[in-house]
Design a protein around this nucleic acid. Structure first.
Length: 213
DNA sequence: ATATCGATTATCT
DNA sequence: GATAATCGATATG
């Protein structure tokens, strides 16, 4: 008697302390961790291979730069909560809050390597997995991974990611990434010079041009 | 492989 | 009224 679940270590949620530090540190340390979504029908899991740090009110590229508003209030709340924003009239993106209550900061999850629930992710993305390489399109990019995991603002904004009972959390399964590459952030115009993007070097699920992987 | 462009809407100026 | 932490399609080398 065997199942995929039996073969997996228990995916314990990273606790609030993990997120209670600078976005730069959280972004770096999240590489290799696992994003998990569990609901009544599905267990989805993907390894984090690309992140970006967004700082506080003086980071012009960060949504926190607008001050505490209805849209971004989660950024100013306690660490380890989901900040979901809607962008270009089309896509949702997942961030996790960092630091502490009153100090804004977050990490954007930019790409995952899918581990479990690939068929369900493909269905959510409107794709079919005919060849092995098709899996790259499931979760390679912030909008793509949100769609694959069914993440929306209405459903998930403010969700406590440090509580497994929330159904969406991050876990350490013992895996340690290899070489890490640091680059400038992608897709922004303001404060573009800072090197706050972290990727697992050479991982095929990292988004963006080849030179940035 | 890289570049350009259109889609589509919540949010802020 | 302009903009945006993107994606997928199309064009071109």
């Amino acid at each position: 008697m065997t199942s995929a679940l039996h073969d997996c270590p228990r995916l314990l949620a990273l606790g609030p302390d993990f997120f209670a530090r600078t976005p730069r540190g959280v972004a770096r340390e999240l590489l290799g961790k696992v994003l998990v979504r569990r609901d009544e029908t599905d267990l989805l899991a993907g390894r984090i291979v690309e992140t970006e740090a967004y700082l506080g009110t003086n980071d012009l590229a960060a949504h926190a730069a607008a001050g505490n508003t209805a849209r971004n209030a989660v950024l100013f709340g306690p660490p380890g909560h989901a900040y979901i924003y809607f962008i270009y009239g089309n896509h949702y993106c997942l961030n996790v809050s960092c630091e502490r209550e009153g100090q804004a900061g977050s990490v954007l999850i930019r790409a995952l390597e899918p581990i479990s629930g690939l068929e369900e992710m493909a269905r959510a993305r409107g794709l079919s997995l005919v060849s092995r390489s098709d899996s790259v399109r499931l979760t390679s990019g912030p909008g793509r991974l949100a769609e694959a995991f069914g993440i929306t603002r209405a459903r998930d904004n403010g969700r406590d990611l440090t509580d497994e009972s929330s159904g969406l959390w991050m876990a350490d399964d013992g895996f340690r990434p290899g070489r890490i590459r640091v680059t400038t952030r992608i897709g922004i115009t303001k404060a573009a010079a800072h090197r706050l993007r972290f990727v697992v070097a050479g991982n095929p699920f990292v988004s963006g041009p080849k030179a940035r992987r």
